[in-house]
């Protein structure tokens, strides 16, 4: 991959796509702990981690498809993720 990068045969969109696929795979690995993990706190933190990865995924999708709407969605999603975590830990 590095050689292909140095020769410029793949564009930046492909790099962003590879990163997005990597983040989705990491989210599925985290989902294992969310399903299997003992207790409610492991599930809360799994949701938090998957939401954190989803923010980066949304920004990457915005750059892949060149649609600036996704950055607003990512910002709102970050705020919602934070509020959801605080609410879940309070009650």
């Amino acid at each position: 991959m590095t050689g292909a990068l140095l020769f410029g045969t793949i564009g930046m969109v492909d790099v962003f796509l590879a990163m997005a696929i990597l983040i989705v795979m990491a989210s599925f690995v985290s989902l294992y702990r969310g399903i299997e993990g003992p207790g409610i706190f492991n599930r809360i933190i799994a949701v938090n981690v998957i939401g954190t990865k989803t923010i980066v995924l949304l920004v990457l999708i915005g750059f892949i498809y060149e649609r600036p709407d996704f950055f607003d969605i990512a910002l709102v999603y970050a705020i919602l993720n934070f509020i959801m975590t605080i609410a879940a830990t309070r009650y």
Partner: peptide, 12 residues
């Protein structure tokens, strides 16, 4: 927000 939520989960 991310360290704050982590601290909140740990404290809970």
């Amino acid at each position: 927000a991310n360290p704050t939520s982590t601290h909140a989960i740990a404290k809970a």
